[in-house]
């Protein structure tokens, strides 16, 4: 049975249709990135999945439950983090929030302690347990939010922009934790993000939503292939060199400083970064090399352009 299932889901606001005949299914254990521009309908979908928002028409089943009929039933089986909202008690030490949430979810005390200890250990939050939530850094707070959402061991974890505003290291730790948590428990993950890194590290499936419609459903490489998003290899050469226009399966994007730095776009299907490097280094001394991945905005823009919108 699908853990998330929507059929012909529609949600209208006063003047706009936020979600437009959305039909999708997520199976248990999947990790799904749900991406789209601001206002594309991502948050609206999540609100309908969790029973905060009533669909205009169509059906939603979360863990097999109609969220409009049994909000509490859904709440027991789903963990949600809205990056912009907090579920912790602002002026209490972090430890207390976990205690209260365990009580709200009616966990057995021994099980609650074991689960809390495990999450605290995995997320390295031990030193912050005595700190009031209001004094935590953003990265610490976000880890605490995710621990709070996972305390009752939900089958489905929904994260709405969990890495927004985090520094590189905090993002890294959060992603590593989520990978580990999923490996251990097989928790299903639905994630909205603007960060391609989140998708790459965490998700095996991507849904792109555009004006409330599903514009793409498939794997990340599949997405890149569909929109023809190219990777870019940036080569720093030892000496100023003529433009590298003759490398097979690449196109020169840019050449700086008289050819000291050159950017070549290539299609991952046609060639590899290693082949490009081999070709170039046979002719020029290469000092450094970096690869730029297609960024999420770019991918989404291309999808939108392809569907004649945006």
């Amino acid at each position: 049975m699908s853990i998330i299932k929507t059929r012909d889901l529609v949600r209208d606001f006063k003047r706009t249709r936020a979600v437009d005949h959305l039909t999708l299914a997520v199976e248990p254990g999947e990790a799904v990135g749900y991406i789209g521009a601001n206002g594309a309908g991502k948050s609206t979908t999540i609100k309908m999945l969790t029973g905060i928002l009533k669909p205009t028409s169509g059906t939603v089943r979360t863990c097999g439950i109609d969220p409009m009929r049994d909000r509490i039933g859904v709440a027991r089986r789903v963990g949600v983090v809205f990056g912009q909202r907090s579920q912790l008690w602002w002026d209490l030490p972090l430890r207390e929030s976990f205690g209260i949430l365990a009580a709200i979810h009616r966990l057995e005390p021994s099980a609650a302690t074991a689960r809390t200890d495990r999450l605290v250990e995995q997320l390295e939050m031990g030193p912050q347990l005595g700190t009031p939530v209001r004094s935590l850094s953003l990265g610490q707070r976000m880890r605490a939010e995710i621990a709070a959402a996972l305390l009752h061991t939900p089958e489905l974890l929904i994260l709405d922009e969990p890495t927004i505003g985090l520094d590189v290291l905090s993002k890294q730790r959060l992603r590593e934790f989520l990978v580990e948590e999923r490996r251990e428990r097989g928790t299903t993950l639905l994630l909205t993000t603007h960060d391609m890194g989140d998708i790459e590290r965490l998700c095996d499936r991507v849904l792109v939503v555009d004006h409330g419609r599903l514009a793409f459903d498939g794997t990340l490489p599949g997405l890149a292939a569909t929109v023809g998003a190219q990777r870019i290899v940036v080569l720093d050469l030892a000496e100023p060199s003529p433009d590298l226009t003759d490398v097979p399966s690449t196109t020169l994007v840019e050449s700086e400083s008289g050819g000291l730095r050159q950017r070549l776009a290539f299609d991952a299907e046609a060639t590899t970064a290693a082949a490009v490097l081999a070709h170039v280094s046979a002719r020029h001394a290469v000092r450094d090399l970096t690869i730029e991945e297609p960024d999420i905005e770019d991918v989404v823009r291309r999808i939108y352009a392809a569907s004649g919108r945006g």
């Binding site: 609100k47 579920q87 709200i104 009616r106």
Partner: peptide, 18 residues
């Protein structure tokens, strides 16, 4: 006003009681 009340609705507990 801030919409944080949604978080209260995401808990398996009546907000008035809480």
């Amino acid at each position: 006003r801030t919409g944080d009340i949604a978080v209260d609705f995401l808990r398996p507990l009546d907000p008035q009681l809480a």
